[in-house]
């Protein structure tokens, strides 16, 4: 039974994959996370998370054609599955519910 709630890094990976779109591959996903959040991303960690997400059927991947600029190596393109989209929504709902009614996090109005 796959988990429905995601870790923070898995959530970032899924959101970055959605932001990049159809041609999302490792470098682009890592760059998007770095650009938006400022968090440095190890590509190995990104691939480990993507493998885990694919095992849980939250993302699906296809391998493209090898290119010369990558030393004859192919790209692996990722897309978020409907189940992955549902997991993102469920995680957001859980986080928002936890966020509410916390006096420590309420901003003071001037």
């Amino acid at each position: 039974m796959p988990r429905s709630l995601l870790t923070d890094f898995e959530l970032m990976i899924l959101l970055a994959t959605l932001r990049v779109g159809d041609d999302a591959y490792g470098v682009q996903i890592a760059r998007e996370i770095e650009r938006i959040s400022g968090r440095k991303v190890l590509l190995g960690a990104a691939y480990a998370a993507l493998d885990r997400l694919e095992r849980n059927e939250l993302v699906a991947s296809t391998v493209g054609n090898p290119t010369a600029e990558r030393g004859g190596r192919a790209k692996r393109f990722f897309r978020v599955t409907p189940r992955g989209l549902r997991a993102v929504k469920e995680t957001r709902q859980a986080l928002v519910a936890l966020w509410q009614d916390l006096p420590q996090l309420k901003e003071k109005r001037t």
Partner: peptide, 28 residues
């Protein structure tokens, strides 16, 4: 993880340093 190696090669070609490449490879 051939696509991972390809990504590292691509990033190196785009201007990343050798130290960055080594760091990523050891972590992977």
């Amino acid at each position: 993880e051939e696509p991972l190696t390809g990504d590292l090669v691509e990033e190196f070609a785009a201007g990343r340093s050798r130290a960055w490449f080594w760091r990523q490879a050891i972590a992977a």
